[in-house]
């Protein structure tokens, strides 16, 4: 339809703007600290986009994305260090392993819904964390963890520039795929499932399979983000993948929006950048996080970004 194509075009213009934005910031940001904050925002945004697909569109909550994020980080590191695979191919490994694992686990776990699904995914994150801290022969546990990942200094650029652009390109590709999926029959099937599983089935959607694919995609996105996170730091340990990480990823989606992919990117940026802007914030970080989440859920349960966007458009219409 006309409108469908124009929304697709609008989205691709936004993607172009995203690339320009990254490029401008890359040049404009002089401090190494801000540049790494930007890089982390881009990395987390990938995982958040995946979670939006699962939560916002298919209506399936997951408080366990940290597990797939960690799985991606470990499998990429394993591929590079033990199998001698180049880092770029390592990204593919980091998407495939969590994606496959996510698909396997999705079938049983997505028979649950609501409270029980939230609980089960949270338990998954907790199990992963325990395994990551204990299975030292593979993960290095908490000390030393994974160390000595190679510096990515392609084309004579410094490590941080390369990772920033790698993260940016991955984010653009992942977002484009997500947008296309949403725009097509898969996206319509997801939204039908969110509305009613009976309605979805009666239009011919294999609900269990479609939900599992959505779960696998979200897991793969989280895995890619995790691998980039590992590449960026070059050394990490299990404490990065505790339950708090899963909740943080959930926060990004909530702060952004449950109904657009752009909201997730906005949310990731907000969660990563805001703490740095407040001086001495570290003490009260958790408290402020918690209260912000409470305030958002009380006042704007569909996501802060979406509610703000609605306010703006309503005002524009009123004028």
């Amino acid at each position: 339809m006309k409108s469908a194509n124009s929304s697709l075009r609008r989205n691709f213009i936004r993607l172009g703007l995203l690339v320009v934005g990254i490029a401008v910031l890359d040049v404009a940001l002089t401090s190494q600290f801000y540049r790494s904050t930007l890089t982390l925002s881009l990395i987390f945004a990938i995982a958040a986009v995946g979670l939006t697909l699962l939560m916002g569109f298919a209506g399936q909550v997951s408080i366990g994305q940290g597990a797939f994020f960690g799985l991606g980080a470990y499998s990429a590191a394993f591929a590079i260090q033990q199998l001698g695979i180049p880092p770029l191919v390592g990204l593919v490994v980091a998407a495939v392993v969590p994606g496959f694992f996510g698909y396997l686990i999705a079938r049983p776990i997505l028979r649950l819904s609501g409270n029980n699904l939230a609980l089960a995914t949270l338990a998954l994150a907790a199990v992963f964390y325990v395994v990551a801290t204990q299975w030292s022969s593979v993960t290095g546990g908490i000390d030393p963890g994974i160390t000595g990942l190679p510096a990515l200094d392609y084309f004579g650029l410094s490590h941080i520039h390369v990772v920033l652009w790698l993260a940016g390109i991955c984010l653009v590709i992942c977002t484009a795929v997500a947008l296309l999926l949403i725009d097509g029959r898969f996206g319509r099937a997801l939204m039908a499932i969110k509305t009613s599983e009976v309605v979805a089935s009666c239009t011919g959607v294999d609900v269990a399979r479609t939900k599992a694919i959505a779960f696998a995609i979200a897991a793969a996105y989280a895995g890619i983000a995790g691998a980039l996170f590992g590449y960026f730091l070059r050394a990490f340990n299990a404490t990065s993948f505790n339950v708090g990480l899963s909740i943080e990823l959930l926060m990004m989606v909530i702060v952004g929006s449950l109904s657009t992919v752009w909201g997730a990117i906005f949310g990731a940026l907000a969660i990563m950048v805001l703490p740095n802007l407040l001086e001495g914030f570290d003490h009260a970080k958790l408290l402020v996080y918690g209260l912000a989440m409470v305030a958002i859920m009380m006042l704007a349960p569909n996501g802060l970004g979406e509610t703000l966007a609605k306010l703006v458009t309503r005002r524009r219409v009123a004028e």
């Binding site: 339809m1 999926l181 029959r185 319509r188 099937a189 939204m191 509305t195 959607v205 109904s259």
Partner: peptide
């Protein structure tokens, strides 16, 4: 009536034609 949330009327009807589409995850990528 069970309208699919977030979709326009024509998109709702397009959702009905699900079985006539062929693209899935791999084709989209």
């Amino acid at each position: 009536p069970q309208m699919i949330h977030g979709l326009s009327s024509i998109e709702n009807v397009m959702a009905g034609a699900y079985r006539f589409g062929s693209h899935g995850l791999l084709k989209t990528i």
